[in-house]
Design a protein around this nucleic acid. Structure first.
Lengths: 234, 234
DNA sequence: TTACATTGTCACAACTTTGCCACATATTAC
DNA sequence: GTAATATGTGGCAAAGTTGTGACAATGTAA
């Protein structure tokens, strides 16, 4: 339905009914979520699961959302995780403080699920910066992450999104052998169940797309998996 | 401390005391400002001085801030100027309406100067710095930002404002693939709740307007979004 | 007011991609 | 050499993505 890239959102609120409401909205929008009902728990979860976004209530037992935000933004390992603060209308004057400690947005209660999801999307969009991805060129095979194109010379190659991601991964880690399991993990994403042999099929498609002149670049490592290498192997 | 921004902010409010208060806050933060006390005046100033941001009260004699916003956002020559709407707390439910007509943010009165400046900074940061208004010509397709016309050779193309902005964005960022979400963010504006599929529909309309001779310029990047490119992809 | 234009959504059509299977072929172990 | 194991290949059904026409809501101009 909505192909979100499996973003994980951590919901922190002491009222389980609110958590539930949010959880439903997130699920419908295709996000994964984690829940915490106090700050302590939240911290553990953040360290363990590294959510892509934190949604925290302003008023929380055991420390306010503000405090949590400040702590997250101070620590360079967590500073990049965007934070949205939920405030009740009456506490609204505090919202400035929220933005000041580094929250990325705030939402005043009551809010509609639609608004929530819209804000969340906007924040995530902004938080995922377009990397300054340089094109990768190996032996005349060029992959340009900006235009999302693969070319040999000026000939553009046709391939599906999965093959593209697979190739990008292999090219950015050339000269290194990966097992099918590792590739599934890196290219397909951790929590999908897919047969290992599926990797072979996609490698096949990649080789086909690249064509015989350059297919030596994708090498089979028997008993292990595959490797992208500019060095012709035997 | 605060590097001079040189940004011009237009303050529109009928109460001179509020204008004054805002003016002081802006001055301290290093912004230039202009003032208008009604919508008519505001329009003239916008045309004459091209402020970098407009700060308008919701309730205004001679037309509401909403109306002004709508008008600004509709006209492609002013659509890029960010607008922040000031609302009284009691009118707060209207904030959604404000965002819907394309305002970039809203601030509820009473607010602190600190909040004002914080929001303003955030909005300006987000605003897309628009380059010079030189015509862009690619493969015979010409977009002229001054006359706001798109032509192929001498044939003028018919399209709505949204398609125009979409095309302009894509043309000024050619050879780059954008997701639907990014396009919504850049072309529609950050906080509008619109379905991602709407982008497809507008792309469709654009392609239709451009016609089959040149529609190869707008390319679908499967699994991602779209790209404007002079290079034919097959 | 009426007529017209623009916009966002939807439903369905058209098209692609995906994962998996079954079988072919290659490589290794015994 | 044969069996066991690993990898290559073509094809297919299901799932997913994008294209398309129509519609209702809204705004605008006459």
């Amino acid at each position: 339905m909505n192909p979100v890239t499996g973003k994980k959102v951590l919901i922190i609120d002491d009222e389980s009914s609110i958590r539930e409401m949010i959880a439903i909205a997130l699920e419908m929008a295709g996000y994964e979520y984690l829940e915490a009902e106090n700050i302590q728990q939240a911290h553990e979860i953040i360290v363990d699961h590294r959510p892509d976004l934190v949604l925290v209530d302003w008023m929380m037992p055991g420390g306010s959302g503000i405090e949590l935000t400040r702590r997250l933004k101070k620590d360079t390992t967590t500073a990049e995780i965007p934070v949205i603060i939920l405030t009740a209308k009456s506490e609204e004057d505090n919202k400035i403080q929220g933005l000041e400690v580094g929250a990325d947005d705030y939402i005043t209660k009551p809010f509609s699920p639609r608004e929530l999801v819209a804000r969340l999307k906007a924040v995530l969009r902004r938080a995922t910066p377009q990397g300054v991805d340089e094109p990768i060129e190996i032996e005349g095979l060029t992959l340009d992450p900006i235009s999302q194109r693969v070319t040999i010379g000026s000939r553009p190659l046709e391939m599906g999104p999965t093959e593209y991601r697979l190739l990008k991964f292999l090219m950015t880690h050339q000269e290194r052998a990966y097992s099918r399991a590792q590739l599934l993990d890196q290219v397909w994403g951790g929590n999908v169940y897919v047969e290992e042999r599926t990797v072979d099929v996609h490698i096949r498609r990649l080789r086909k797309a690249i064509g015989s002149t350059h297919d030596f670049l994708i090498q089979t490592v028997r008993g292990t998996g595959y490797r992208f290498s500019a060095k012709r192997s035997v």
